[in-house]
């Protein structure tokens, strides 16, 4: 589904090499966990796949097409097929919880009836039914995280990019969220999840890619978190 070919990212002017000649193939329906210390390059990798940043060199190919050569319209369509959970939540502060989650459905052209049916159901799933009309500034870190998760899942994307999705959740919520990911993955959705939480990796028991200093140092099928 996604191939990274010799992808390098250097941040200027500090010349920090965040990604160092990454080569990675992700098959459709696969669940990949990317692990590594803080600053290892996990977030940069997620951002590069979402085309939020451009690689300095190398190529990212999504279903046969290079992301480097797509135009703005194609980029919008590409992103509509992805559900991204950002490390810093990235909620729209001028919209309430319902509207934030509904926005992901609106951009894919879902009908009002579908939105009115699906959004409450997903908010119920992430335990935010009571916060439907709250604004992001009225939520705790964990609640914001769950809104971000709901927004990423709501439109049943083909690919989920999750950057530290459990960072601000309590133990029970983490288990619920991971179970949701596993269920969605079973239905055929590809998931790339970045974390430095050992328990998450061990719970999921999926393919684990370890990154150090921007380079892949280990690729284990159904591996465990080793640092």
């Amino acid at each position: 589904m996604i191939s990274l070919k010799d992808v390098t990212k250097i941040y200027y002017p500090s010349k920090i090499m965040a990604l160092d000649h990454i080569n990675l193939d992700v098959a459709k329906g696969e669940f990949i966990v990317i692990v590594g210390r803080s600053g290892a390059g996990k977030t940069t990798l997620i951002k590069a796949i979402n085309k939020e940043i451009e690689p300095t060199s190398g190529e990212i190919i999504f279903e046969g097409a290079s992301l480097a050569s797509i135009n703005m319209t194609e980029l919008n369509c590409f992103r509509r097929r992805i559900g991204t959970i950002f490390q810093d939540y990235r909620l729209i502060h001028t919209k309430n919880v319902f509207e934030n989650v509904a926005y992901a459905m609106e951009v894919v052209g879902a009908s009002d009836a579908d939105i009115d049916r699906d959004v409450p159901s997903v908010l119920n799933m992430v335990g935010l039914k009571e916060k439907t009309h709250s604004f992001p500034q009225e939520l705790s870190g964990g609640e914001k995280q769950r809104v971000a998760i709901a927004r990423a899942l709501i439109h049943r994307p083909d690919l989920i990019l999750a950057d530290e999705p459990t960072a601000n959740l309590d133990v029970y919520s983490i288990q619920d969220v991971l179970e949701s990911f596993l269920k969605i993955n079973e239905m055929g959705t590809t998931i790339i999840l970045a974390t430095h939480n050992q328990n998450v990796v061990n719970y999921l028991k999926t393919r684990v890619i370890t990154i150090e200093n921007g380079a892949i140092v280990r690729d284990q099928q159904k591996g465990k978190f080793i640092l």
Partner: peptide, 11 residues
């Protein structure tokens, strides 16, 4: 907010 809308795929 505008950046988030674009990252979600808004035209």
């Amino acid at each position: 907010e505008i950046g988030v809308m674009k990252l979600v795929g808004a035209s």
